[in-house]
C-alpha cells in the first residue's frame, strides 16, 4: 500500500481537485493520496468528489487554514 502526496498549497479551486484527478490513475486499491491545501474551497469539492467515487476520506487541520486531505482508494 503506497502513499502519495500532492502539494496544492497556494492554489485556488478548481486546481487542487484537477491535480488529484490527474494523479488518481497512478494509485492502486488501498493506496493513500495526501493532498496539502490551504484554500478552504478545496475542502468542499475534493472530499465530495472522492466520496461520490466511493473512496474513504479524512481531513486533518495541520494548522490554522492549512489542511491535509487523506483519500484511500477503494479496490
Amino acid at each position: 500500500m503506497a502513499e502519495f502526496s500532492l502539494d496544492a498549497l497556494g492554489e485556488a479551486c478548481p486546481i487542487p481537485l484537477l491535480k488529484v484527478q490527474k494523479k488518481w490513475p497512478d494509485l492502486k486499491g488501498g493506496d493513500v493520496l495526501i493532498i496539502h491545501i490551504d484554500h478552504s474551497c478545496a475542502l468542499k469539492n475534493i472530499p465530495e468528489w472522492a466520496r461520490k467515487e466511493g473512496h474513504n476520506v479524512e481531513v486533518e487541520e495541520v494548522e490554522d487554514g492549512v489542511w491535509d486531505i487523506y483519500i484511500e482508494k477503494t479496490a
Binding site: A12, C13, P14, L17, L18, C41, K44, N45, E48, W49, K52
Partner: peptide
C-alpha cells in the same frame, strides 16, 4: 457534477 461545470457555490467558484 464536481468541478466539471455544475457548481453549488458561487463564493468558491466565481473567480474561475
Amino acid at each position: 457534477l464536481y468541478d466539471k461545470g455544475i457548481s453549488f457555490c458561487a463564493t468558491c467558484d466565481a473567480a474561475y
